[in-house]
């Protein structure tokens, strides 16, 4: 086992070996989750706190379930309704929480880098559940596991990430991960939703779905982040759907066995056609959700092992 990290803040600083270790363990948890008795004691006795400074249903539920299946005591804190409204700073919130001795802290925050800042101030393991437009590492890992299981490998694939790249932490984490595993990554979307400097990321950039999807193995759609839109990025949703929404016709240029992915929640009829999303021959969107729980179990399990190792008194052999 190579995974030595204290926190999971992003994919950027993981090695391909780290990623393999995480995915191998996650595959094991996929099997566990399909049994009648979906439980082990990997996190027994540990306290997991989910701190979400931004609305989330799916990710929070996935982390909660992952923790409970591994025997952790799980607490959810909806931070929007809490002390942050009373003017408490992020660091004070973290220190307050830290005093309650959590072991695993799962954090989502609307500002890039906020989770890194918090991780510096606490002495438990921190998992980034999405920070601003920066990273969403467990999403990239669950996408990777889904691809690996659907395609039989996670290298030398051609993968198109389509839509609102600029506002997407999912895209950034996926670009890091897929690049580290030696895949060809294409970004497809209107120029207003492409981040600046994207040409230097080691990806191919397309402004047109017909070109961008040609012969790809995987089509990864992104949600149009309507809540992040603070300016004129696209003229209208219907024009966006016409030019960049994925439907069966646009998918035709991809490989015949290309799979369709979406991190959810979907805007049906905005970035993806509803029928295609439900097509079990092409869409792996439900598998992504299933892999999400397993990947989060694996990540928390590995971090908890490292946490326990770090807490052993020095000089004691175990």
């Amino acid at each position: 086992m190579t995974f030595r990290a204290k926190h999971l803040l992003g994919i950027e600083h993981l090695s391909s070996e780290d990623i393999k270790t995480l995915l191998d363990l996650a595959a094991h948890y996929v099997d566990l989750n399909r049994r009648d008795i979906k439980h082990n004691d990997a996190l027994a006795g540990l306290t997991q706190v989910n701190m979400f400074f931004e609305n989330s249903t799916r990710t929070q539920a996935s982390f909660e379930l992952a923790g409970k299946r591994l025997g952790a005591d799980v607490m959810n804190m909806a931070m929007q309704a809490s002390s942050i409204k009373k003017g408490e700073t992020l660091i004070d919130t973290a220190l307050t929480l830290n005093a309650m001795h959590p072991d695993l802290l799962v954090v989502r925050h609307p500002q890039s880098g906020a989770v890194n800042l918090l991780a510096e101030k606490v002495n438990c393991a921190v998992l980034n559940a999405g920070d601003g437009r920066h990273e969403h590492p467990t999403q990239a890992l669950l996408d990777a596991l889904t691809i690996q299981r659907a395609k039989g490998r996670l290298h030398r694939l051609s993968i198109a990430i389509c839509g609102d790249i600029a506002h997407s932490r999912v895209a950034r984490s996926n670009i890091f991960l897929l690049g580290k595993m030696e895949n060809r990554v294409r970004l497809v979307g209107p120029p207003t939703l492409m981040p600046a400097g994207v040409a230097d990321w080691g990806v191919e950039v397309y402004g047109d779905m017909a070109e961008g999807l040609r012969d790809v193995d995987v089509v990864m759609m992104l949600r149009l982040q309507r809540e992040r839109m603070d300016g004129a990025f696209i003229p209208s949703e219907r024009e966006y759907y016409h030019r960049f929404g994925l439907d069966a016709a646009k998918l035709k240029v991809a490989k015949d066995d290309a799979i369709v992915m979406h991190p959810g929640p979907m805007n049906r009829g905005v970035e993806i056609d509803g029928t295609l999303a439900d097509d079990i021959n092409r869409s792996v969107i439900q598998e992504q959700v299933e892999m999400g729980v397993a990947v989060r179990m694996a990540a928390m399990d590995l971090l908890a092992r490292n946490l326990r190792t770090s807490r052993q008194p020095e000089g004691v052999l175990v």
Partner: peptide
């Protein structure tokens, strides 16, 4: 408006709101 960094590869990778 709202920018915390100069737009380019670095700010995009860090996910920071940026100004040209």
């Amino acid at each position: 408006d709202g920018a915390a960094a100069t737009s380019g590869k670095f700010s995009s990778l860090k996910g920071l709101p940026a100004v040209s």
